[in-house]
Design a protein around this nucleic acid. Sequence first.
DNA 1: AATCTTACCAACCGCCTATCC
DNA 2: TGGATAGGCGGTTGGTAAGAT
Length: 214
Amino acid sequence: MEGSLGVRKGAWTKEEDVLLRKCVENFGEGKWHLVPLRAGLNRCRKSCRLRWLNYLRPNIKRGEFALDEVDLIIRLHKLLGLEQLKECIPRNYGRWSLIAARLPGRTANDVKNYWNTHFYKKNMVSPQHQMKGPSSTLAPPDEDGIPWWESLLFEEEVDKGITSSVGGLSGLWAEKDINAPTTEAAGDTFVEGSYSGWHGFSTDVDLWDLLGEE
DNA sequence: AATCTTACCAACCGCCTATCC
DNA sequence: TGGATAGGCGGTTGGTAAGAT
């Protein structure tokens, strides 16, 4: 299975995994354009990076999402989808990465897949009744027959709490003496809590502050 | 047992931003 | 300053396993 430039595509073999792992162990993460050459792999740089980040990296957690993980995904997704934040986070960039950064061992791809499988597609049909939600083995519905996760998705009080938290962002910046003169910088400030890839804009504002948790 | 449908998830693709020259 | 390149992201696709008919 090869692409137009003779670069291999599709599922990775065990041999390829071994080569990639050895390469990263020897040279470290990064410089992905050099990895195919160094590892002796007939793969593109993006494919190597993705394979490492989503599958080969140490401490990757596999298997079913725990209750608290799903809870957090729902809350953070809701938070990051708010109009107020869309204004200051360009294109919602880093949304899945932000959420994944709060779930040790989970990757952005994992979180995205989970959301798309359990919530997003169901939302397209009928939000209140078509969603399957997290595996029923996680937790039974309450006495009213309403799954625990559904209340998180549609609970107005959760909305209010999150909205007020976001509304208080400017206060947080002021409180922490953070200079956020533009909406773009404001977005960086928010994102920085768990994502360090942008601009080197550093602050200790945390998603937990916005969620009002520990 | 065979076929069809659904769910899951690894991987690809295109786009954007940052950095380098 | 502007083009080329690399890194990184979200959206989407496609293969496959599991369940239903």
